[in-house]
């Protein structure tokens, strides 16, 4: 576990770089997090649509959605998801949205 500063606030990250406590996240941190995760910036409305969806799913279900789930229910297609988050949409969006890494094989 490590601590890092985003938008001037100290947060706790696990060994993989995901937030330990999603409540520590704020929207102001997203641009810096996006850069840290290698997400093409600046963040667009579509990025935000995915980030907000990730968080609402996490708080509703206790786990973030997989890419397939995102493609089916977030309103952003799988193709677009990979354009927005080239190195793995669910993983990168979870990191940028301050929630744990989603677990799921499909």
């Amino acid at each position: 576990m490590t601590t890092k500063h985003f938008a001037g606030i100290e947060v706790e990250l696990n060994d993989e770089g995901f937030f330990v406590d999603p409540a520590q996240w704020s929207e102001a941190m997203a641009p810096e997090l996006a850069e840290a995760w290698g997400i093409p910036t600046p963040l667009t409305d579509k990025h935000w649509q995915v980030l907000r969806f990730m968080r609402s799913e996490y708080f509703e279900k206790g786990t973030g959605p997989t890419v397939r789930k995102l493609g089916k229910t977030s309103g952003v297609t799988v193709k677009e998801l990979y354009q927005l988050f080239p190195k793995g949409p669910a993983k990168l969006a979870a990191g940028c949205a301050g929630i744990p890494k989603p677990r799921g094989c499909v």
Binding site: V67, R68, P86, G88, P89, A90, C105
Partner: peptide, 11 residues
């Protein structure tokens, strides 16, 4: 298929 999809999900 699952391995290919899983690989892409990990970037």
């Amino acid at each position: 298929l699952i391995m290919a999809n899983g690989a892409r999900a990990e970037g």
